[in-house]
């Protein structure tokens, strides 16, 4: 019984079905473990956590600069920025908006720098459903390649105060 002192010779190797199941489980655990390094080298979707220290004000300045030099218009007062393919793109999260709107080209890669001016935020791209965590003081670099054209919403999925649900942004892929 599980609530009584076990018999003296309780330490013995598993037998029968129990042994088969442990072996099967171990094999499955190893398959799941191997999948991750394999995908890291062969797969196209990885989160490598590339990041650099950055003061929020400093990051803000970089965003402002990209708006001044690469702006191609605006929507509802939010500037639309078209970064050069293969180059750096900047996205700033703050209570409660993402800016600027980014205009990207399909199948071109960008070094997308995302950071926060204030609290922690969640970068969530819809309806693709890709999610990354954003911290103040960290320049999170996502090397992304859009694979579909269209208009995509960026929302915040980490609680950032009472207006959290108002925090939206946009990425346009041509």
């Amino acid at each position: 019984m599980s609530i009584h002192i076990p018999e003296k010779d309780w330490f013995k190797a598993p037998t029968g079905g129990e042994r088969v199941w442990i072996a099967l489980s171990l094999v499955w655990c190893l398959i799941m473990f191997i999948m991750m390094p394999v995908w890291h080298f062969k797969g196209k979707q990885n989160s490598t956590g590339e990041a650099y220290r950055v003061e929020p004000a400093q990051f803000m300045a970089r965003v402002q600069q990209s708006i001044q030099t690469q702006s191609v218009g605006e929507e509802n007062g939010v500037p639309i920025v078209q970064p050069p393919p293969g180059g750096d793109a900047y996205l700033l999260g703050q209570m409660w908006r993402w800016q600027p709107i980014l205009k990207l080209k399909k199948d071109q890669s960008y070094r997308l720098h995302v950071s926060s001016l204030d609290l922690q935020h969640g970068f969530s791209l819809l309806p693709v459903n890709m999610n990354f965590h954003i911290l103040p003081g960290y320049d999170h670099v996502l090397t992304i390649t859009p694979t579909q054209t269209g208009e995509y919403q960026v929302i915040c999925n980490e609680f950032c105060g009472i207006g959290h649900h108002l925090m939206t942004g946009k990425i346009i892929v041509e």
Binding site: E75, V78, Q153, H165, L166, M167, T168
Partner: peptide
Amino acid sequence: PRRHWDVEFAGANLA
């Protein structure tokens, strides 16, 4: 999203 009051995003600047 989890921890989110309004998934209709009513009142957000960009829909």
